[in-house]
Amino acid sequence: MLSAKAKTQLGNFLFVAPYMFVFAWLLVWPLMSGMGLSLFKADLFGGATFVGLENYGRLLSDPVFLQAVGNTFLFVLLCVPPLAIIPLILALLLNRSTRVAAFFRGVFFSSSVLSVTIVTLIWRMVLIPDGGFVANILAVFGLPPIPFFSDPGIVMGSMAIITVWWCLGLPMMLYLSALQQVPQDIYEAAALDNSRWWTTLTRITLPSISRTVVLVVIMQCVLQFQLFGQPQLITQGGPNGASRPIVLFIFEVGFRRWDIGYAAAASQILFAIILLVTLGQYLLTRKRTGDA
């Protein structure tokens, strides 16, 4: 006969077992399979030859892959700071119990529900140099159109503009939720002390929502390292690979060149990059906030 404690533990295990099974099936098993596949030279038709770490060596000397890594890091640097700061400013401005604030919260969040296909179609009409919205405005002032998608120097910046507009909504709502959890009596005490708005912001508001700021930064890093849809639909990685991120490189290698083992190795490197960046970011911010 099982003891009461053993019965409780068995019940807890049975309760979480379905979730753990699905988690292992959908996440853990594909991850482990990808690690194993990266050690083989394999194609879509089932042929596989064990090559060890050869795929990783090829990647580290592949100029196309190294360019994709550089493009991805550039894109993350262009996107994450605005997606951490602009939604915070919007949340501070819209943290009001008024109909106007509620309306603008809905306006800024509305872009987040659009699919990547719709977003790229909208921004193609805005940014294309041949009859686009920006080009027409520049033409009014007698200025030439800007080649947003054909100039290697600004194409990733164009992708960043599109992505920031698209992704503003969720961080803003996270900040709003955090701001509404800050006790109002703290602000009342600050007002009685004639505290300036900057002092209130830096000494009360930001420290109170610091965990949410860390969450937003880490979440955006994870998401933006996985850039794929925008360059794939607008530029196909061009011009001259200037907008090809790591995920698009994996897609091209795996499903156009049929080199599945090579693509799996690239995906493992991407996983390692995301893991190291987010872990380092978390440890750094945790140390600064004194939680270590």
Rank of each mutant, 00 (worst) to 15 (best):
T212R: 06
F23H: 07
P129W: 07
F149K: 09
I250H: 01
V213E: 09
S150K: 07
L170K: 05
A191Q: 12
S208H: 04
V80L: 01
T8R: 14
N194E: 12
I86K: 01
S177F: 11
Q230C: 04
L276Q: 03
L94Y: 08
A139M: 08
L138S: 05
S115D: 10
V69H: 08
T285H: 14
V28N: 04
I250A: 00
D259V: 02
S38K: 02
P82F: 12
G290L: 08
I86H: 00
L143Q: 10
I154H: 08
I250Y: 00
G36N: 09
L174Q: 03
L168I: 13
D291C: 08
V222D: 01
P144F: 02
L223G: 12
Y19P: 05
P183I: 10
L83I: 09
F141P: 09
Y187G: 03
L53A: 09
L77Q: 05
F75I: 05
G131D: 04
Q224S: 02
F65N: 06
L179V: 05
R124Y: 15
G47E: 08
A160P: 07
V253G: 07
F21I: 15
M32Y: 15
Q220P: 08
A190I: 07
G290Y: 04
F109I: 04
L39P: 04
V64C: 06
V80T: 02
R96W: 11
L233I: 12
S208L: 09
V76A: 12
G70L: 12
L53F: 14
N12C: 11
G153C: 01
I204N: 03
L127K: 08
G36V: 08
R124E: 12
F141S: 13
Q224G: 00
S3H: 00
G131L: 08
L121I: 15
R244H: 02
F228Y: 15
K287Y: 10
A265C: 02
L233K: 00
R99N: 12
M125H: 14
E54Q: 12
A17N: 06
F65H: 11
M125K: 14
F271I: 05
V51A: 03
W198E: 03
M219Y: 14
L93H: 00
P152A: 09
T199G: 08
V140G: 05
D130G: 07
F141A: 14
M1C: 08
A101T: 06
Q67A: 10
S97T: 14
N240W: 13
G36T: 07
N12D: 11
L170H: 06
R288P: 01
V51E: 06
L179P: 02
D62I: 10
P63S: 04
P147M: 06
T117A: 14
